[in-house]
Amino acid sequence: MSKNTVLALVGSLRADSTNQKLAEAIALNAPEHVDVLIHETLGNIPFYNEDIDVEGQVPAAAAALRAAANDADTLLLVTPEHNGTVPASLKNAIDWLSRPYGAGALTGKPTAVVGTAFGQFGGVWAQDEARKAVGIAGATVLEDVKLAVPGSMVRFAEVHPKDDAEVVEQIKGVFVALEESRTAAAA
């Protein structure tokens, strides 16, 4: 079985982000044939603007994001919920990856969305909005890959998600669904 590279984009820029911790737990629980790479520089990418998206002049952070996404087999968006929707940093990454129109790094890229949030539903609104945005941008949205962990600020106040048995089981389910999607796409 060949290695599958999953690029994780974390929508929270906060140093003690529960979504960053969730991404770390996902990377730690990846099967042997999966490499999870967490992209660390979403906060350094300027807001998308066609005036600066010029060949040879694309900001370095945006170019690095595009290169990482192009090299990945699958994208995994790990998102908190900001005012009922996806955070600006993650939406901005989607915008950069959607260009050039019809040929961006998202075009046809299998993409899953997971996350955790303080509220009782675990950020499902933000996850739905992220799925909508990446789908419109041309990604192949993996609708069956879901993980929404509610009550993140309390639940992970003293326990890292990698040490939460229920979350680890849900992460394993994410990888099963990713593998099923990969197998179905190859058929």
Rank of each mutant, 00 (worst) to 15 (best):
L65K: 00
R66S: 11
R66N: 13
A68C: 09
A69H: 01
D71T: 07
A72E: 00
A72R: 00
T74P: 04
L76Y: 02
V78S: 12
V78P: 10
V78A: 11
T79E: 09
T79D: 09
T79Y: 07
T79M: 08
P80Y: 01
P80D: 01
E81K: 06
E81W: 07
H82L: 05
N83D: 05
N83M: 07
G84W: 03
G84Q: 08
T85N: 14
V86E: 04
V86S: 11
P87N: 07
P87F: 03
P87I: 05
A88P: 06
A88H: 07
A88G: 12
S89P: 06
S89W: 02
S89H: 03
S89I: 03
L90M: 09
N92S: 10
I94K: 07
I94T: 04
W96R: 03
W96H: 08
W96P: 10
L97N: 02
L97Q: 02
S98P: 10
R99Q: 11
Y101S: 13
Y101P: 05
G102Q: 01
G102S: 07
A103W: 03
A103C: 06
A103L: 10
G104D: 06
A105T: 02
L106G: 02
T107H: 09
G108D: 05
K109V: 06
T111D: 01
A112I: 09
A112D: 11
V113F: 07
V113G: 06
V114N: 06
V114E: 05
V114T: 13
V114F: 08
G115S: 13
T116E: 06
T116Q: 07
F118K: 01
G119D: 08
G119A: 09
Q120L: 14
Q120I: 05
F121R: 00
G122V: 02
G122D: 01
G123E: 04
G123D: 08
G123I: 03
V124Y: 01
V124W: 00
V124L: 12
W125L: 13
W125S: 14
A126L: 06
A126G: 14
A126V: 03
Q127M: 11
Q127T: 06
D128G: 15
D128L: 14
D128A: 15
E129P: 01
E129N: 11
A130Y: 01
K132R: 15
V134I: 15
V134Y: 04
G135P: 11
A139V: 04
T140A: 15
T140P: 03
T140W: 03
V141R: 02
L142E: 00
L142A: 09
L142M: 15
L142Y: 00
E143K: 14
E143F: 11
V145Y: 10
V145S: 10
L147W: 02
L147K: 01
V149S: 13
P150Y: 12
P150W: 03
G151N: 15
G151I: 04
G151M: 12
S152A: 15
M153F: 10
V154E: 14
V154K: 12
F156A: 13
F156C: 13
F156N: 01
E158F: 14
V159C: 13
P161R: 13
K162A: 14
D163K: 13
D164F: 11
A165G: 00
A165W: 00
E166H: 08
V167F: 07
Q170D: 14
I171N: 02
K172S: 13
V174L: 14
V174T: 09
A177H: 04
L178R: 00
L178I: 01
E179D: 13
E180V: 11
S181E: 02
S181A: 15
S181K: 03
R182D: 08
R182M: 08
R182S: 12
